[in-house]
Design a binder for these strands. Structure first.
Length: 477
RNA sequence: GGCCCCUUCGUCUAGUGGUCCAGGACGUCAGGUUCUCAUCCUGAAGAUCGCGGGUUCGACUCCCGCAGGGGUCACCA
């Protein structure tokens, strides 16, 4: 707990589905707010009308809700600094812009975008950096809102402390007269997010690494506006599986909600995402959400980027699934049963679930793992013809053995203990190894390439179903 | 190209001058758990700590240089 009552925010733009890279930024901000007894805000930065996508805001909210990253202030819940959607705050930005114009610190940009492009190309051809301030108009037109408005900044070297990266310094060429209000009347991110963070009393601003070279701009704007900047926190990048580029939707980063739809647990995803770029210095790998809140620390956030290794996520999801009490797991998998399970009683499904809990890596695997508990799979000769033990025996031998098994099982009470005793007894009377006998009975009763332990499976399947299936295989031998 | 950040097993990482010829986890491989798959357990392979110089009795740890990777240079965020 290094900060008390941190106010943090997550400020995405609604330009597409939320993916894990972005979620990490939200998570760290949320953790800091939670652990310090502060607030976490959601603010929608919809100032680029062209890039906005239909349903973008809804996707953000739904993703955060699924993950459990609840916001104390923001859309839907309101708060003392509403509205929390930038397109509804245009008059505020205009007011601050006007203030700068009044102070002579902002001016209308008289160039067309084509002219600007020409100047840039010329600079590039001459191998020198393009700086707008070298082309400042001597007598800029009065800003009437139809031109872009630029902030006027004097060249200056910058140095500041970042909570993760430490002391960073950059030269005067990093800050130029940037546009604060676009010709369409909307503010730019560089300008309005600073105002919002100030007005909303944000204490820690987390941004991912691609913003690091923009920080001097933000600092310069604070200075021009006479505002005190918040604590800047640059987070290392989350890289895609190639390790060559940051995770981005352009390059196929999976939307968070896809993990939900595949049956990943939000706590597992958070555990995974948190440990890309952060660890508590111990050998702990598995964290519950409360543990993350308790142990998270900015001081232990990594500076180097990390790869999103989905294999590790799958592993962690399995761990979290296994840790769940059966009743809770049962509620969570409700939407993932195979169609054939429809209408089956809860008690039965819960028994089945108990058998596959330690095999489940994510819920979308549930149908493949449990299908045979709900429906008779077609008899598949491949299963014994390809079996490394059973293929050594002739069909007639298999048939004899299976008939012996049928007789023995007919006399069993089909409790796990009774079945275990029955099967062990059968090993003796037939003189067979478990590898042969158990495999045969397992294949006969499931017609599946794999299943939970034999006695457990038979007990859940029940006597009628088990014997029927044995008959069906007997007929095929 | 300018500027900025980063650099420990394939991957996530521990390590803040000596306890490190570098520890854990995922993944991989092998063995065990009466049958399969999974779980669990045991074990193995896997990093000359990007490279080169310093400083020091001693460096993964401090300093300098280089290289590589990433980011950024928009009326996008």
């Amino acid at each position: 707990m290094e900060n008390s009552h941190a106010r943090t925010r997550f400020a995405p733009s609604p330009t597409g589905a939320l993916h894990s890279g972005v979620v990490r930024t939200a998570l760290f901000a949320w953790l800091l707010a939670k652990q310090s007894g502060g607030q976490f805000l959601l603010r929608i930065e919809d100032t680029d009308q062209k890039r906005e996508v239909e349903g973008g805001t809804e996707n953000i909210k739904e993703s955060l809700r699924w993950l459990g990253l609840d916001w104390d202030e923001g859309p839907d819940v309101g708060g003392p600094y509403a509205p929390y959607i930038q397109s509804e705050r245009l008059s505020i930005y205009k007011q601050y812009a006007q203030e700068l114009v009044g102070k002579g610190l902002a001016y209308a940009d008289p160039y067309t975008q084509e002219e600007l492009q020409g100047l840039r190309e010329q600079a590039q051809a001459e191998k020198r950096p393009f700086l707008f301030r070298d082309h400042r108009p001597e007598n800029p037109p009065t800003w009437d809102g139809s031109q872009a408005l630029r902030i006027k900044l004097e060249p200056k070297a910058w140095q500041w402390d970042d909570a993760v990266m430490g002391t960073i310094s950059m030269g005067p060429e990093m800050v130029d007269d940037f546009i604060i209000i676009k010709a369409d009347g909307f503010p730019t991110y560089n300008f309005c997010h600073i105002i919002d963070d100030y007005l909303m009393k944000i204490t820690h601003v987390m941004r991912s690494q691609e913003f690091i070279s923009s920080v001097p701009k933000f600092l310069a704007a604070h200075e021009a506006l006479g505002l005190t900047p918040p604590i800047n926190v640059i987070l290392p990048q989350v890289m895609d599986e190639t390790g060559r580029r940051k995770l981005s939707k352009r390059h196929g980063a999976k939307p968070v909600l896809e993990y939900r739809d595949q049956g990943f647990l939000p706590e597992a995803l958070l555990n995974f995402i948190a440990t890309i770029g952060w660890n508590d210095g111990t050998e702990q790998e598995i964290y519950t959400v409360p543990e993350l809140i308790e142990k998270f620390s900015l001081a232990r956030v990594q500076r180097s980027g990390g790869i999103f290794d989905e294999q590790r996520l799958v592993y962690l999801n399995g761990v979290h699934i296994r840790r769940l009490p059966l009743d809770e797991l049962y509620e969570r998998v409700a939407n993932f049963w195979p169609a054939s399970a429809a209408g089956r009683e809860d008690a039965y499904k819960k028994q089945v679930l108990g058998l596959v809990q330690e095999r489940l890596k994510f819920f979308a695997e549930l149908p493949a793992l449990t299908e045979f508990f709900f429906t008779d799979l077609p008899v598949d000769p491949q299963l014994w013809q390809d079996h490394k033990q059973l293929k050594k025996l002739a069909p007639a031998e298999l048939k004899t053995l299976l008939e012996q098994a049928k007789t023995a099982l007919t006399g069993s009470d089909f409790t796990v203990d009774g079945l275990t005793a029955c099967l062990n007894n059968l090993l003796e009377t037939t003189g067979q190894k478990p590898a042969v006998l158990f495999s045969l009975v397992r294949i006969a009763t499931t017609q599946a390439p794999n299943s939970p332990g034999l006695a457990d499976t038979l007990a859940v399947l029940g006597k009628d179903t088990s014997l029927q299936r044995i008959d069906a295989m007997l007929a095929a031998l």
